[in-house]
Simulated scan of single mutants.
Amino acid sequence: MKITDEHNRRMASMTFGSVYPHYVKKVESKGRTVAELHEVISWLTGFDDAEIARLIAEKVTFEAFFQQATIHPHAELITGVICGYRIEEIDNPLTQQVRYLDKLVDELAKGRKMEKILRKP
């Protein structure tokens, strides 16, 4: 399934802060914590808790969020299907990075062990 340019534009213009509460609700409803969520976000992006809070407060778009991020070198190991799209086949780098984050949050909510989520050898 091909991702349209319109889909990519919508993804880029969404604010991280508008999606973040959904991530929190998803993981907490499955017995995981905000601290674990932040660990996952930090692993992928390099942001610490203060930076995450700042980015939410500044209402940055996903485009700005990922422009400021330092993507983990093992992020390419995040594979599978999210929202009907195979992550490793997404050709738009920003959309792929957003889907990396979505996939990590899903894995956290599903109870996967942290060392597996963080792609530790």
Score class of each variant (00 low, 15 high):
R32T: 00
H74W: 08
A12C: 01
R32S: 09
K59T: 09
P73C: 02
I82Q: 08
K120T: 04
V27E: 01
R112I: 07
V81F: 11
D91R: 14
R112E: 13
L37A: 04
T61A: 04
R10D: 04
D5M: 11
L44C: 10
W43M: 08
A109N: 08
I41W: 05
T33E: 10
M11F: 12
Q67G: 02
T79E: 15
P21Y: 03
G80V: 08
D91E: 15
E89V: 02
A109Y: 07
S42V: 03
M11P: 01
V81T: 14
V24D: 00
R10E: 05
I117S: 08
A57F: 07
K120W: 05
K110D: 13
A75N: 02
F47P: 06
A50Y: 02
I90P: 06
E115L: 11
R86A: 15
G46V: 07
V81R: 07
W43R: 05
L104C: 09
R32V: 02
G80P: 12
N8F: 05
K30S: 13
R119P: 01
I87H: 07
V34S: 03
S29G: 13
E28V: 08
F62L: 12
D91S: 09
T95I: 06
N92E: 13
K103M: 12
K2P: 09
G84L: 07
H72L: 02
D5F: 12
G84V: 09
E39I: 03
G46L: 05
I90E: 09
E6D: 09
I87V: 15
T4P: 04
F47V: 01
L77S: 14
K26F: 00
I52L: 04
R10H: 05
T15M: 10
K116N: 07
G84Y: 06
A50F: 06
A64P: 03
N8I: 12
T61P: 02
E39V: 01
T4K: 05
A35I: 09
K59R: 15
G80E: 12
P93L: 15
H72E: 06
Q68F: 06
L118D: 01
K116E: 13
M1E: 10
K59D: 13
K120Q: 15
K103Y: 06
F16D: 09
V24N: 01
G111V: 02
A35K: 12
I52G: 01
A69F: 11
N8S: 12
D106S: 03
E76A: 14
R54M: 07
T4Q: 07
K116M: 13
P21M: 06
P21V: 09
H72P: 05
